[in-house]
């Protein structure tokens, strides 16, 4: 479904990605783990067209998408809950969700998707008309995920959805990830919480200073001594 062929990305003189290749197949949950500054966010930003790779190609459902503007990729079925959540602080929870359906025209369908988001995260329903800026970090994360789903993506990118959240909320977020995959949405999950990410995914890539250094089935990686030492703290 998604293929990255040897992509490199630079910020001025800094080369953040140095020839990254990876792929995500239809229906999979794939996780990308790595330390701070490894290039995880950069990878997701290139997939969504927020950054243009200097080398390499990105293919989505067989078509090259590198260099395409973000709004076209959203229309093609890619959606992202970004690092830092990026909720519209001055809009209410409901308005944020409606914004997620910007490209959708069918009102009834939008309302059904809204209800689905509220079912997935009942906390959001309670805060429906509250300004998003006044939500707690966990609630903002739920909102960012629910909003990303409003465009009915076939590929959902999640950038550190559990960052800085209390264990109970982390649990809610990962339950939601399971639920989303159960509905048939393909997920690429960036996480520093390697333990949970490996538990809730099929395959994993490990990124270190802009290079993929390991890849494989999540179960196997979780048992690998090098991963245990570096990312699972065992």
């Amino acid at each position: 479904m998604l293929t990255l062929e040897n992509i490199s990305v630079s910020y001025g003189a800094i080369r953040a990605l140095k020839g990254v290749s990876m792929h995500v197949e239809q229906g999979e949950v794939v996780t990308l783990i790595g330390a701070n500054g490894a290039g995880k966010t950069t990878t997701l930003r290139s997939i969504t067209g927020l950054l243009a790779p200097t080398e390499g190609r990105i293919l989505f459902e067989g078509a090259e998408i590198s260099g395409k503007p973000t709004h076209q990729l959203v229309a093609r079925g890619i959606s992202m809950s970004p690092e830092g959540r990026g909720v519209f602080a001055n809009l209410t929870v409901r308005e944020n969700l409606q914004m997620g359906a910007y490209l959708k025209k069918n009102k009834a369908e939008i309302n059904r998707d809204l209800e689905r988001g509220f079912r997935m995260f009942p906390r959001l329903k309670e805060r429906e008309s509250q300004k998003a800026g006044t939500l707690s970090g966990g609630e903002q994360q739920m909102l960012a995920m629910a909003r990303a789903l409003m465009s009915r993506p076939r590929l959902l990118l999640l950038d550190e959805p559990s960052l800085g959240l209390a264990p109970l909320v982390v649990h809610t977020i990962f339950e939601a990830i399971d639920e989303i995959r159960g509905e048939g949405t393909t997920i690429l999950l960036v996480e520093q919480n390697a333990h949970a990410a490996l538990k809730h995914s099929d395959r994993a890539y490990v990124l270190e200073t802009g290079r993929i250094v390991m890849e494989g089935a999540s179960k196997e990686l979780a048992a690998d001594p090098r991963i245990k030492e570096a990312y699972l703290g065992e």
Partner: peptide, 17 residues
């Protein structure tokens, strides 16, 4: 309004900014 609040998020909503 979305663009003025947050350009990146606006793009991610599918808005041709």
């Amino acid at each position: 309004r979305a663009v003025s609040f947050n350009l990146t998020s606006a793009k991610l909503m599918g808005i041709n900014t």
